[in-house]
Simulated scan of single mutants.
Amino acid sequence: MPANILSDGFRRILKSGWKGLCPRCGQGRMFASWLKLAPQCECCGLNYRFAAPDDGPAFFSLCIVAFPLTFVVVWIQVAYSPPWWVHLLTSMPLMLLGCLLPLRPIKGWLVASQYVNRSVEAGTETLWNRMDGRDDNRFGD
């Protein structure tokens, strides 16, 4: 079995997304605030206009956390029939924290993945290049 199972690109996606760093240089900040992307990297000048994570972070957060946790909450209700305030003190904070905390790393991973994999919307690359006055160089490398 090879010692290096993860590719360099995948490692770069995980590292820059988790830490919120620029996927190109790994130094500058990707976020201006908690979930708002910076206009560009302050170190290398990478423009983040290419990034379109849209609703992806919320979707993955809900699928990874909220959906399985809903089964736990229903199980607690069926098995123990606790009063409503028990769910208010336990289930609600778990759902809120579980869904909100992973949003930033997931958004960072999606943006880094778009950069590393040079993803663009199908059929719009030529139009974007013409509008931005760019040649075939999609992301300012």
Rank of each mutant, 00 (worst) to 15 (best):
A32P: 08
A32Y: 07
A32E: 14
W34A: 13
W34S: 09
W34P: 01
L35C: 12
L35W: 03
L35F: 03
L35I: 12
P39H: 06
P39W: 03
Q40P: 00
E42S: 12
E42C: 04
E42F: 05
E42A: 13
C43Q: 14
C44G: 04
G45W: 04
G45N: 09
L46P: 03
L46C: 02
L46E: 02
L46N: 00
N47I: 04
N47C: 08
N47D: 15
N47M: 07
R49E: 04
R49C: 03
F50R: 10
F50Y: 14
A51Y: 02
A51L: 07
A51H: 07
A51C: 12
A52G: 14
A52Y: 06
P53V: 07
P57R: 02
P57L: 02
P57Q: 01
A58L: 13
A58S: 11
F59A: 14
F59G: 05
S61M: 08
L62N: 10
L62S: 13
C63G: 15
I64V: 15
A66F: 14
A66Y: 10
L69Q: 12
T70F: 10
F71L: 13
F71T: 07
V73W: 06
V73G: 03
V73T: 14
Q77R: 10
Q77E: 06
Y80R: 13
Y80H: 11
Y80N: 12
P82Q: 09
P83S: 14
W85L: 12
T90R: 03
T90V: 15
T90D: 04
T90L: 11
S91A: 15
S91F: 07
S91V: 10
L94K: 02
L94E: 03
M95F: 15
M95Q: 09
L97F: 13
G98W: 01
C99S: 09
L101C: 10
L101G: 05
L101N: 08
L101V: 15
P102C: 02
P102E: 04
P102F: 00
P102K: 00
P102V: 02
R104C: 02
R104V: 02
I106M: 07
I106P: 00
K107M: 11
G108N: 01
G108M: 11
G108T: 11
L110P: 00
A112G: 02
Q114M: 10
Q114A: 04
V116F: 02
N117A: 14
N117K: 14
N117D: 10
R118N: 06
V120I: 12
V120T: 08
E121R: 05
E121S: 13
G123F: 04
T124L: 09
T126L: 12
L127I: 08
R130D: 11
R130T: 13
M131L: 15
G133D: 13
G133E: 14
R134P: 04
